[in-house]
């Protein structure tokens, strides 16, 4: 690796989603790709997610959303990130996301979208690409 700087990722599940098995497995895959992964668990409010991103100086926030509320959640979080000056932080969203919503998310400012079924390789490549 040329770049000595480690990529730090915050994995969080906003809202009322019931389980976090998928998010935990992704966290492990990212660790195995050499990233430092802060896992903050279930039921995170957007305030918690932004504050955590600040305190942990992460490069990427990875949201896992299964509830179908990815559009309003992403929009609100992006606004909060802007308010808090988190301009250098990339927001990525994964979970149950219909393909037709991907352009909408990107337009809002989401850096990468990983809909259900995306392979670990593609997630890792997608994140690494943000830092090239």
């Amino acid at each position: 690796m040329k770049n000595k700087k480690k990529i730090r990722v915050l994995i969080a599940k906003p809202g009322l989603d019931g389980h976090d098995k998928g998010a935990k497995i992704v966290a492990l895959a990212l660790r195995d790709a050499g990233m430092e992964v802060i896992y903050s668990g279930l039921h995170q409010t957007l305030e918690q997610i932004t504050q955590t991103a600040i305190q942990e100086t992460v490069d990427v926030i990875g949201l896992s959303i299964m509830s179908g509320a990815h559009l309003p959640i992403s929009e609100k979080l992006i606004n909060m990130m802007k308010e808090q000056g988190l301009d250098d932080v990339n927001l990525t969203v994964g979970g149950v996301i219909p393909h037709r919503d991907i352009p909408k998310l990107k337009e809002m400012g989401v850096a990468e979208v990983f809909p259900g079924g995306t392979s670990f390789e593609d997630i890792i490549t997608g994140i690494n690409k943000l830092f090239e």
Partner: peptide, 10 residues
């Protein structure tokens, strides 16, 4: 891998 899971904060 040089990576880490930082799970204390949870």
């Amino acid at each position: 891998s040089g990576g880490a899971i930082l799970g204390d904060r949870l």
